[in-house]
Design a protein around this nucleic acid. Structure first.
Ligand SMILES: [Zn+2]
Ligand SMILES: [Zn+2]
Ligand SMILES: [Zn+2]
Ligand SMILES: [Zn+2]
Lengths: 137, 137
DNA sequence: CATTAAATGTTATAATATAACATATGTAAT
DNA sequence: ATTACATATGTTATATTATAACATTTAATG
């Protein structure tokens, strides 16, 4: 197996992958690809492709998720997401806060919705637009 | 109240709205906006905006849904979707078949996932990537 | 018919994402 | 260390998706 260390250890992300991930972790909110690009222009990231390639890899590693309905990206805060691309988020429509849903049974729950067991669930993408508890007050 | 008939009766869609909806209903699969545009160029639809405006209205009416992760649009086959923009689909990764999920309790089920009842679910977008029962064989 | 909201037409442009191809770098086998 | 190979980078151009801005038209209401 090639690139064993690069694949298995998070410390061995490439430079671009690392700074994109760091930026997303600091941001604590979804960022758009071009916003990442502008933020990192001082660090040698000069073209959209450099951002998209880093994002693709980070998504593949489960370290970043894409929020499809916002064309935005967030750092994963759930160590269980390592090897897949499932995403489940709440998004407050008032304050834009985005939180990753933690629910150990979510895969089963969503699988049940799929087709009463006749089909096989591979991956899910769930976006719940809410009014968060702070904004409800 | 203005435009009462236009708002309440599906027969009173505007011309563009009607032909876009008809195309989507005939297609039986998700179509992209520009594919709709090219398909309808013979019917006087000549610019992206004309498609997007019709789609926006149809989505607002619940007659069309957007599949966010595919930037595609489908006609609603569920008469219950009238007044909102909730979407729930299965998407077969092998054959690309897209089906709208019918589940009367889905709103409650997803609401439970949101935040143990501390937040208010307004709208959901669920995309389940599956291998459908035909492709499993 | 005057008022108003909604819909259309049109041109331009913004925002998001990928193609294509050349070069460089890290890993493993000989 | 040389070769082979996969992955990563750099760069330019282009494709795809979506909206801004503004003028004009159409349809319902009173
Ligand atoms: Zn995660
Ligand atoms: Zn909020
Ligand atoms: Zn529907
Ligand atoms: Zn299938």
């Amino acid at each position: 197996m090639r690139y064993k260390q690069l694949s298995d250890k998070k410390e061995n992300l490439t430079k671009h992958q690392e700074i994109v991930l760091e930026l997303l972790e600091k941001a604590n909110e979804p960022l758009k690809a071009y916003s990442i690009l502008f933020n990192l222009s001082e660090h040698g990231v000069k073209a959209p492709l450099q951002v998209y390639r880093a994002l693709d890899k980070l998504i593949e590693l489960g370290k970043v998720h894409k929020i499809e309905s916002k064309n935005s990206f967030v750092a994963c805060i759930n160590s269980n997401c390592k090897a897949n691309s499932n995403t489940a988020f709440t998004i407050c429509e008032q304050c834009d806060e985005v939180l990753e849903i933690h629910d150990k049974k979510i895969f089963k729950k969503l699988g049940d919705l799929a087709n009463q067991g006749k089909s096989k669930l591979n991956k899910y993408n769930l976006e719940l637009y809410i009014t968060c508890k702070n904004c409800l007050k």
